[in-house]
Simulated scan of single mutants.
Amino acid sequence: MRKIGRPFRHRLTRSALRSATPVVTAAALLFSLAGCSDGGNSAAARPGPEVTAPSVKPAPVWRTDPGSIAALGDSITVGFDACTVLSDCPEVSWSTGTSPKVDSLARRLLEHPARHSWNYARTGALMSDLPDQVDAAKARRPELVTVLIGANDACRSDVRAMTSAAAYRADFARAMKKLRRALPRTQVYVAAVPDLLRLWSEGRKNPLGKQVWQLGICGSMLHDPDNLTEPAVSRREKVRDRVVAYNEALKDVCAEDALCRFDRSVFDYRFTERQLSSWDWFHPGTRGQEELAALAFRTITGRAPEE
């Protein structure tokens, strides 16, 4: 009789094994083999290695209050012909200018615009020059880079001399890749190339402007501005189509970068001759520079554009 409180333990002795029926012995052996084997469902009963979910990098956040700006681009960004004839006037640049007449992007965003903004744009620059401008700017480590370039690629002596859309895209992609390698956290604002056909339609209203254009400004678009024959109209449409292709390239390449914003409104903006330089009726005057600054400010400080 088993005492209360003591655990009952069944021990299978040698004599018991010898006297056990074959069925019982086989069952015990089978149970023992199943417990030691790696086959069957035994693996499911054992806890497997702990699976750790891969860490997810947070998406870069666009800041609406960058602390420094570097401007890249062409004559528009250095204020060419905005103050005096045939001269750069960077103090009225839409991006980094210090003049209160324009209220530039730097003046709107930075506490000390003169100390924390730099202009590396160059009159006459093409998209193929942008990678070199990136090299010049990267030492400053700006928090925001502005880009407005492409009018010179379309404004050639003849439509056959325009930069191809493929070359334009490749040069912009190369510049962005170089910028991102050097400045992984820098934000990039990319302005669309302005509508050169609208420039022709507005500027030709001024007789003095048309005389200035005869000196050879943007011959692909502005040559013989009063000529409305089919070949002349077709020539201007080819220039506009090329600008549209440039802007598609800017949009596509920019969309691949989480810290890049493309601003089509610069192409869509319906400027008048009042925003053009009174020296050449081609470049933006101070009013035009002010409008460019306002468009850029809205894009940089606004919500992320809808996909």
Rank of each mutant, 00 (worst) to 15 (best):
H10M: 12
T272M: 06
T25W: 12
F267S: 00
P58T: 00
K251M: 04
K101N: 10
W213H: 03
A106S: 07
F80K: 01
L109F: 05
M221D: 06
A296I: 00
E111N: 11
V102P: 04
E111D: 08
G5K: 02
V85F: 08
R303F: 06
T123G: 15
G209W: 04
S164Q: 08
L228R: 15
Q214F: 09
R261N: 07
A294Q: 15
C254I: 07
R298K: 15
A26N: 12
R122G: 13
D132V: 01
W62Y: 08
G40N: 05
P60L: 11
R270A: 12
T98D: 02
P22H: 12
Y269C: 00
R264F: 05
V243S: 02
R204A: 08
V92I: 10
D65C: 11
V193L: 05
S32Q: 09
S117K: 06
I217R: 13
R6K: 15
N119W: 01
R156D: 08
A45W: 12
S265E: 09
D158F: 09
A139P: 09
A139E: 14
A34I: 10
G73Q: 04
P66W: 04
T229H: 15
T96R: 03
P194Y: 06
V147N: 02
G5C: 03
D226N: 11
L276F: 04
R240L: 15
L295I: 06
A294F: 14
S234C: 11
R160P: 00
C260W: 02
A106W: 01
R2Y: 14
G40P: 00
W118I: 08
L29Y: 13
R2C: 13
C254E: 03
G216R: 03
D268T: 07
V239M: 09
C83A: 10
E202R: 09
A82F: 01
A296H: 04
D81F: 02
D257H: 13
L126E: 12
P49W: 07
E111K: 05
A43G: 10
A125T: 01
W279A: 09
S55C: 13
S15H: 13
V212F: 04
S37Q: 10
L144E: 03
L199F: 14
R274G: 06
V159R: 13
E237H: 15
N119D: 10
E143M: 10
N227P: 13
P90M: 02
A175F: 09
Q187N: 06
K177D: 15
S220G: 14
E248I: 09
Y246P: 05
A192S: 06
A304S: 12
V193C: 05
M176R: 14
I217Y: 14
R274C: 00
